[in-house]
Nucleic acid binder design. Structure first.
Length: 805
DNA sequence: GCTTAGGGTTTG
């Protein structure tokens, strides 16, 4: 068994072999030998198990665990690619949050280092030597925790749970009876972050609802914060195991009981199914996935959910209560009941922010910032019970602060010296004492979508010394933010243009929703939001034959496939039409040696002198293949299989042409290595080669879901068939070059500025078609909308190219 | 040892 689960106290044999010694992730490098070495880390990302024709591959990211909690904002993380049975076992046995130790790995260069900024190397685990150990250790000793006997009982409960593979049943909230122990699912409509109770535990308070429309209050007592529900916002979905029902004030409430566990999920329809849990093992199958999806779509269609009060600093108005997602830059104690948190979210508040003077030398983090930066920093005063929590926060942490109050110009702010005049109408922020209204602070995990989104906004803020582009203001904004005065009015300048030629009057979204499908419509709208937020995920591979759509594999996965393909090169006989030889691949750095790889060429092409037009290349790494594209127009990677030449698995590109890579459909291709017919063919391109190889060529497409908005309603529409027209970019270019990717990012940021309010979003003239489509469950027909014949005409601000002063 | 809290008409 390549994945071994180690449990403390499980006896000999459940130990990592003593001849192995551990290497810190930070010290991993290409040149060293890692025989008898291990790498240990916490699984911070676990990718899906990808099944290939005769293999499995899985990508994960592990992070070095520091013995001191939260010493650094980020410990070193490294990509790990697992292949074969190991990938399958890992997928089943290991959960995000587990600590794993790997041995028998090889070290390669990480092809995604520029994108993910993780370790420059990756680990490849494949073959018999590779092994992953999963540590299921009890929690670190805690002075307040009960003696070991309790821990061991918790641990044995854990073991029996994992071995039994229990099937859980869930009770609908409308069917709860007092005096039983149940498992439930629900959508969160109210929550309080865990707070210290008067007893021994922290207490979380939730209210959840489900399709039975019954709202149920839940109280969770746990000593460890990590065992509490990880709720980030209203609409999140929780699954709780082993809660007891009891009557209080004439209604049923839920309280956790022995063996309690909870998993939380983002509530967004179509969002990631990333479980938030501290459980070391938990059951989650297709049925659970469906339950979460059903709750998501049910909640989305109901008006039961209170609005999420999350806004950015740019949208804050005096006296408002709101939730803020932000990064902590610095903090300073004010007095025993009050602490100052200095935070930002990358957006500029439209009101001047109050400055708070603190005593010198008490600030943790930078004590001052540039004037420009100061204008983006909100000063938050947290009081009473929150002071204790704030003390544990480290500058750099990403936070969500709930029920913040914006207060204009109070001269009574503690720490404001008497010599400082009252600053009228300057906004300060208060987190009042107590937990009413869910007041509290939560540290958001680095890998959460919330933090990813925030980082994107923060990254877009110009550097400190920049003489800040003044493009972002008045004159332009006024043009963009003027709402349409009438639907046919010419008063609004729009940032898109229709090219459909339909002679129809613009309609409102609410009218459009009432009309029958099968027609085209013109609307004037703003872009309220879009998915996927990570734009590279909008690039897909589409098969025009079977109409399937799939994600584009990332380089980490591809590198693993190439590495795997080069591993098992048994003897083979090249096809009769091929001329075989060797090609020198230069080393990747000046000192490193060249490698000679086997290549096969078409005799016919050779005879025509076309030696550089097409090679079949064996045993290359992904990187080497890419490097050779400068010398050969078409490179088809091949391997030996069953004594013959075969294509590498169709999960990998079957063809490299310059920076472009071409994929084939695994379902519709009957691939074999054959000689292309080059007679009378001007240009040997992907189509010629795909045809020769029996490959059904996949097409790069862009697929996004946009939420449009006008004064009457909002509407989810797809941008797919005409996505290239919309962005004036080809999907193939997006797949191959960064500039095309950037142009989409700029366009989207222009249509929907990060952190921007509705007033900052330009108006768009859009042509939509409405059509009936079967939904995923196969039964119900639903009306879908697609943007067509529409092009963005206004170029985004050239932020990187400010006007000379 | 088997409590703790049980939202909410919002302080500084």
């Amino acid at each position: 068994m390549p994945v071994r689960v180690l449990l403390e106290g499980a006896g000999p044999g459940a130990k990592i072999p003593s001849h192995l010694s551990r290497v810190p992730i930070s010290l991993i490098s290409i040149s060293s030998d890692y025989t008898n070495k291990t790498v240990k880390g916490k699984v911070v990302h676990k990718g899906p198990l990808v099944s290939l024709a005769d293999n499995f591959i899985l990508k994960t990211v592990i992070q070095e665990e520091d013995s001191q909690p939260s010493a650094l904002p980020q410990n070193p993380s490294i990509n790990v690619v697992l292949l074969g049975a190991l990938a399958k076992d890992f997928s089943q046995a290991v959960n995000q949050g587990d600590v794993v130790e790997a041995s028998g790995f090889t070290v390669g260069k990480s092809p995604t280092v520029h994108k993910d900024k993780l370790h420059p190397c990756n680990l490849l685990l494949s073959g018999d030597d590779a092994c992953v150990y999963v540590s299921r250790l009890p929690p670190p000793p805690d002075p307040r925790s009960p003696p070991a006997i309790k821990r061991s009982s918790v641990l044995s409960a854990e073991v029996s749970r994992t071995t039994k593979a229990q099937k859980y049943t869930y009770v609908k909230l409308g069917d709860l009876k007092a005096g039983s122990i149940v498992n439930v699912y629900g959508v969160v409509v109210f929550f309080k972050q865990p707070f210290k109770s008067r007893g021994t535990d922290f207490c979380s308070s939730l209210k959840i609802i489900d399709q039975s429309n019954q709202k149920i209050g839940c109280t969770i007592f746990c000593e460890k914060l990590d065992d509490h529900p990880k709720i980030f916002q209203i609409g999140d979905i929780v699954r709780m195991h082993r809660v007891k029902t009891q009557f209080f004030n004439d209604s049923i409430t839920l309280v956790n009981t022995f063996g309690f566990s909870v998993v939380a999920f983002d509530g967004a329809v179509g969002g990631a199914m990333e479980p938030r849990t501290s459980s070391r093992s938990f059951h989650f199958d297709q049925e659970d996935r469906r339950t979460v999806e059903e709750l998501r779509s049910w909640a989305a269609s109901q008006a039961v959910l209170p609005p999420v009060p999350a806004i950015s600093l740019s949208a804050v108005q005096p006296k408002a209560y709101f939730d803020l997602t932000c990064q902590l830059l610095a903090k300073a104690p004010i007095d025993t009941t009050c602490t100052l948190l200095r935070v930002w979210d990358g957006t500029r508040c439209s009101h001047t922010l109050l400055k708070v003077i603190v005593e010198p030398n008490v600030t943790e983090g930078p004590s001052s910032f540039s004037t420009e930066r100061e204008n983006l920093i909100a000063n938050i005063l947290v009081y009473d019970n929150h002071v204790e929590f704030a003390r544990q926060l480290k500058p750099g942490a990403f936070l969500r602060i709930y029920n913040l109050r914006a207060i204009a110009g109070s001269s009574k702010v503690p720490g404001l010296t008497s010599s400082q005049s009252e600053e009228v109408d300057h906004l300060a922020f208060h987190l009042h004492g107590g937990t009413a209204y869910g007041r509290g602070i939560r540290v958001l995990p680095e890998n959460s979508t919330e933090v990813q989104e925030l980082k994107r906004v923060l990254d877009a803020v110009p550097e400190d010394d920049d003489n800040l582009s003044k493009l972002n203001d008045s004159a332009l904004l006024e043009v963009w933010s003027t709402p349409p005065e009438s639907l046919d009015g010419e008063t609004v300048e729009c940032s898109t243009e229709r090219s459909c030629g339909h002679d129809i009057q613009p309609t409102t979204l609410s009218e459009l929703k009432r009309s029958d499908p099968g027609r085209a419509h013109h609307v004037r709208v703003q872009l309220r939001s879009y998915e996927p937020r990570r734009l590279h995920q909008s690039l897909k591979l589409y098969c025009s034959k079977c109409r399937s759509m799939q994600d584009v594999p990332d380089d980490e996965l591809l590198a693993g496939l190439f590495s795997e393909a080069s591993r098992d090169s048994g003897p083979y006989s090249p096809p009769p039409w091929a001329l075989s030889g060797r090609v020198d691949v230069p080393g990747d750095s000046p000192g490193s040696p060249n490698r000679a790889l086997s290549v096969h060429l078409s005799t016919q092409l050779m005879s025509e002198g076309k030696t550089r037009e097409l090679i079949f290349l064996m045993g290359s790494t992904l990187e080497e293949t890419c490097r050779l594209t400068s010398g050969y127009q078409n490179i088809v990677p091949v391997r030996s299989s069953g004594g013959h030449l075969a294509l590498v698995d169709l999960s990998a590109p079957f063809l490299f042409r310059g920076r472009k890579r071409y994929y084939g459909c695994r379902r519709c291709s009957e691939a074999a290595v054959r000689e292309p017919c080059a007679e009378g063919v001007e240009l040997i391109d992907e189509k010629v080669i795909a045809e020769a190889l029996g490959v059904q060529l996949l097409q790069f497409v862009l697929l996004m879901k946009l939420e449009l908005q006008d004064a009457t309603d909002t509407l989810d529409v797809f941008l797919w068939r005409d996505a290239e027209t919309f962005f004036s970019v080809s999907a193939e270019d997006v797949a191959a070059n960064q500039e095309a990717q950037n142009s989409i990012r700029q366009a989207v940021d222009f249509l929907c500025p990060p952190g921007g309010s509705a007033g900052e979003r330009p108006w768009l003239d859009v042509c939509l078609t409405a059509y009936r489509a079967e939904d995923d469950d196969g039964g119900q027909n639903q009306t879908c909308y697609q943007i067509c014949h529409t092009t963005i005409t206004k170029p985004p601000f050239a932020r990187s190219d400010p006007e000379p002063a």
